[in-house]
Nucleic acid binder design. Structure first.
Lengths: 335, 335
DNA sequence: CTGAAAGCGCTTACAG
DNA sequence: CTGAAAGCGCTTACAG
């Protein structure tokens, strides 16, 4: 069943059918429109996806590359992206880069080949993106990065106020009397340059607590990474631990338990992200919540807006974090 | 840059280029082949995706529908699917049905419109699939269900031996002296007919423990569902709890803690799935592990095999579970 | 207000 | 061993 059939049954030309279906048919008489629309409805006709795209490249598809789909942060982001795109009839080609920069580029190449209309690239690490740029440095395709602010740029930034979030978390610990505060950071990014680390450092400074190199351990942002990092940090005599994300905190819980210590009696712990699961840990985890779903939602929104309006700059959007107090922190006894 | 350019530069016809690139060029002289291949390489030519598909519909794409991408079970399945498909150059269009049967069908319709070569549909619930079938009952498109065995069929079953897994879990509890054993089951499936429930029931029978209706609570297979279900079950004087999945167990941990009880001192808990996180819970969770990644991997493999060989029956594959003993169960004191 | 015709970039049946 | 031509199902510039 093709446009020809519709044209024949409606007694018009295929041009007419095409124009009317593509909302370019103002010039046709109401009767003609009606006839065409009726036939289309009756046959449940829909223009062939590939024939249509050969001409117009309106694929109504975007590509999404994530480093690890089983990471609760990224799956939540995807959920937000999907929410917005679904409302608009767009679909997502999902690519799991497995944290490999090489794979990211291979996927992007294939996505370009398939004429996706835009790409959302999520990664907690610095990104190498030769494939997204033309030789003159302009963008080859509309894209949005979800990178926790690692890659600096002046438009299309979608990040939570990391500095503030980290600062408040550490300040909370300081206010509870803690002065030996460890931090579990991200291995593959340079923690020295992240806002999250700056927040930690600045807070110590403001409260005149000397900064100790040994209180920082960098690991993968995973449960396992948190477990290993915490084991290492527990060698130091810290009384509190600020974790790079909630998953690391979950790993830290186990390490702390194995070290024979209790949370929060012996050590206070704060996470970052605000995953649902933090409510259910025992004890529930105090965490710096960020609106992960919304980040995905706005990534999708900004991308689509940009596709529809390529001339306009992509806005930046900063989300506020919220320190959610639960039961994993405690006032130092000596305080 | 089109096939015309390649033909011109190689000094041959476009037919020749097409045939050689599509491995149908045995008949051409080695020199011709070489010339064409050289030009293709130099230009980095690749046939236009849409032009090619208008003729051949080899979209190298499959659709994947899951009820909730943030569910650790499904994200792990997707990882397995992706692994296999990626090796073959296939890509995945991901659809989040949000547990809605209506959305599942809308997505399937759109996937059909986009000529995906196959569909993997994951759902823990009974599935309504008018869109996947022709009027005569035959399949409209190759597809594989990942449904935990809920929808009975004689081919393409991909399930773990649920009966056995559940039986062993409950038997373990019985062997530790437990006789009041609760079960957190899945709300939206009819637990009466699932193998997991049969395993539970049969084990009680074999050990002559009377079955109690009140020991079964059905909730969503989520952390929250587990939390609520456990709260309810803790009203009963059970000494052990078999959870429908690990996420429910995580929720149960919190409910148990809030009830002022300790695991495993006051109550033993067993989960189902074997998620990585179970190693990190405190105490670590004894669980019935199933090879989730492999389930996804084989779903992809069977689907692709079926696409390549539509005549052959899709095999069934049963995976064995493994009861992984950790620290959430304990011999009853009175035993 | 409407439609014939060119064109999008391929594949394939067929002729030589 | 090779290629001209038809066809896949659309959209769009153009003519009337």
């Amino acid at each position: 069943m093709t446009i020809k059939d519709v044209a024949r049954l409606a007694g018009v030309s295929i041009t007419t059918v095409s124009q009317i279906l593509n909302k370019k048919g103002d010039r046709f008489s109401p009767e003609t429109r009606q006839k065409v629309l009726a036939v289309v409805k009756e046959l449940d006709y829909k223009a062939d996806y590939f024939a249509q795209n050969m001409v117009s490249k309106q694929t109504k598809t975007i590509g999404m590359v994530v480093p690890d789909i089983t990471d609760l942060f990224f799956s939540k982001v995807i959920e937000g992206v999907e929410k917005h795109l679904n409302e608009l009839g767009f679909m997502i080609i999902l690519c799991n880069s497995n944290h490999s920069s090489e794979k990211e580029n291979l996927y992007i190449e294939e996505l370009l080949h398939r004429s996706v209309e835009g790409i959302i690239l999520a990664s907690p690490n610095p990104i190498h993106l030769p494939k997204l740029k033309n030789e003159d440095g302009s963008n080859k395709i509309p894209h949005i990065l979800i990178d926790r602010g690692i890659n600096k740029r002046d438009e299309g930034q979608l990040i939570t106020n990391e500095f503030q979030g980290a600062y408040e978390a550490v300040e909370h610990l300081v206010n509870l009397g803690h002065r030996e505060i460890g931090m579990l950071s991200n291995e593959t990014s340079f923690y020295e340059i992240t806002d999250r680390f700056y927040g930690y450092k600045k807070c110590l400074e403001d409260y005149q607590i000397p900064f100790q190199e040994e209180w920082i351990v960098s690991k993968n942002l995973t449960i396992k990474g948190g477990y290993e990092g915490a084991q290492q940090l527990l060698q130091q005599n810290i009384t509190a631990l600020f974790c790079g994300n909630d998953q690391m905190a979950i790993g830290a819980y186990r390490a702390i338990n194995e070290a024979g210590k209790q949370i929060p009696k012996d050590i206070s712990v704060i996470g970052y992200d605000g995953l649902e699961i933090t409510d259910y840990l025992v004890p529930s985890l105090t965490t710096v919540a960020q609106p992960i779903f919304e980040i995905g939602y706005f990534a999708a929104k900004f991308l689509i807006d940009h596709i529809n309006n390529p001339k306009e700059k992509v806005p930046n959007k900063y989300f506020d974090t919220q320190l959610v107090l639960k039961n994993s922190t405690k006032k130092l006894d000596s305080f």
